[in-house]
Amino acid sequence: MNQSAAANSPAMQDAQIRVELLSHPTYISGVRELVSSICRRIGFPELCCGQMALAVDEALCNVMKHGYEGREDQPIAIGMQIHEDKGGNDHSFIRIVIEDRAKQVDPKTICGRDLQDVRPGGLGVHMIREIMDDAVYEKREGGGMRLIMSKKNPSQGSSCGLPDAGGGKNHG
C-alpha cells in the first residue's frame, strides 16, 4: 500500500482494532469474519452478527466499486471501537469507521434507492442504514470519504434490521 487511508485520522483514534487493506474483493470475507466474530464476542445475537458483517461488506463493496471504480490496489482503513457491557447499566456497542482515499462525493447524494422500484443494484446503502443504528458519510480531510457506523447490542433494545425475519425455510 503506497499510502495509508487512515494515517493520523482523528476518527480512528478511539478504535481498539484497526485494519488496513487494499481495495481487492478477495479481502472482504476476512473483514466480514472479523466483524462477526467481535460482535459475537460482545454478546450480539447470532443473526445480528451476520448482519453487522453484511453492513461492512456492503460498505467495502461500495468503496471498491464506486469509490475506486474497480481499482484493486487502493487503500482502505477500518477502525472498530468496542464497548463491552460487563454487567453494568450501560450497553455493549460497536462503532465502525471506514476510510478511503477515493473520489469525494457530496454525502447528501449517498442514499438508498426507493425499494418500490425493483431493479438490480442500489441496495447496499439501504442495507447499511437498515442494519445499523447510525450510518454517517462525510468527506475526509485531505481527500477520500469516511463512513461512521454504530450499533448497540440489539438484545438490549435496538432492532437488528429485520423485525420479523422468520427464516426462508418457513416461507413458501
Partner: peptide, 21 residues
C-alpha cells in the same frame, strides 16, 4: 437459510420473488 432470507426481507424483496422452502 435464515441469513440469506434476511437480506431479501430487509430489501423488501421477499414478497417480490416466489420463494419456497
Amino acid at each position: 437459510n435464515e441469513k440469506v432470507f434476511a437480506i431479501f426481507k430487509i430489501a423488501r424483496l421477499d414478497t417480490v420473488f416466489e420463494i419456497t422452502p
